[in-house]
Design a protein around this nucleic acid. Structure first.
Lengths: 179, 179
DNA sequence: GTCGACATGTAAATTGTTACATGATTTA
DNA sequence: TAAATCATGTAACAATTTACATGTCGAC
């Protein structure tokens, strides 16, 4: 059962979609933003951006618009359906997987929320993020209690780093909720 | 210019190599370790582990050994060249790239150092890690001073999260050096 | 005797990055 | 007029995951 006709939107695609929601941009302009800001740590190389733009245009979430200066390249702008698709991505429930494997994506989503989500929706996102992180910290600490004796010192210290990192995340969530 | 004859050792390969250095293990045993400990967040699925073991055996850094119980599967053990290869990986200089894109790999390397590196080598590693992280924090803060006005609130907050994360890393390095 | 743990493997898909290729336009 | 910047694109590679496929062995 291959979903060969369903075009999946990848994380990079969503990042680009979120970007052109803020300001319509040319492919080259998008590349420059990715390069200058290390946006989500994606490369911003042509091989990353242009195929993504093609995918996004194909499914109708962005469209080409003429630049006010007719000499310049056309710009990509988000469509109405694009706005809906973007919102859905931003509001997607946070899974346990997201917390362990895609933490940077969660943060990236948060970074793009202003202008697309309401204050209330942002808050809901942070609250469920907080629950997921809390749960994961508990799991990590339980594992640590059981297994730390069997670890070499450096292994133990590395594990402690993991726990401290997530505690920092938790503090940030807390601070951001109450701001 | 394709290096089609040079077999590259990937991060997963090194993780497995480091694991069998501690105790010889069967492929299945390795899978179970990856699944139970979320080692470096790799999946531990057959498609990940068995091809990696083949690569490692092919280049002679691990070898099959008979289990003491002849009914059981053979085990993979590290070879002498394997030990050298592992040490080289563990002591590899830390690049700026590593800090921004492969932080978890750096921590994973540290986790495996006991038993392979001397106290002095571990310390050197942490010291150069500290320098790289400090530099990156400075770069992040400089960027923030320049660009934060142009960011929406949530973008600013997400960026602050990044800075705080790296500060946590720095604190951990500091604590671990002086322990 | 069947169910779960033990055990190994491959093919295809996923998601990107690197490197190559090309050309227009501005600026010094 | 040469160099830098603007601009777009594809092919090949890389690293890993998912899903499929298969079989043994011990316990209940």
């Amino acid at each position: 059962m291959k979903n060969s006709n369903i075009l999946k939107i990848t994380h990079i695609d969503y990042s680009i979609l979120a970007l052109v929601r803020q300001t319509p941009m040319s492919g080259y302009g998008i590349r420059m933003v990715f390069q200058k800001t290390a946006l989500g740590n994606y490369s911003g190389s042509p091989g990353t951006i242009y195929p993504a733009l093609k995918r996004l245009e194909k499914i109708g979430v962005i469209e080409k618009k003429k630049h006010s200066n007719p000499k310049k390249q056309f710009l990509f702008a988000i469509t109405k359906t694009g706005i809906e698709v973007l919102k859905k991505w931003l509001m997607r429930p946070i899974s346990a997987q997201d917390v362990t494997k895609n933490l940077t994506i969660i943060i990236l989503r948060f970074a793009f929320m202003d202008g697309s989500l309401t204050q209330r929706q942002k808050r809901n996102f942070l609250v469920s993020f907080r629950i997921a992180v809390k749960n994961y910290i508990v799991a990590l600490e339980e594992y640590y209690v059981k297994e730390s004796k069997r670890m070499p010192l450096s292994g133990r210290q590395a594990f402690e780093y993991g726990i401290e990192s997530y505690k920092t995340t938790l503090k940030w969530i807390q601070k951001t909720i109450s701001s």
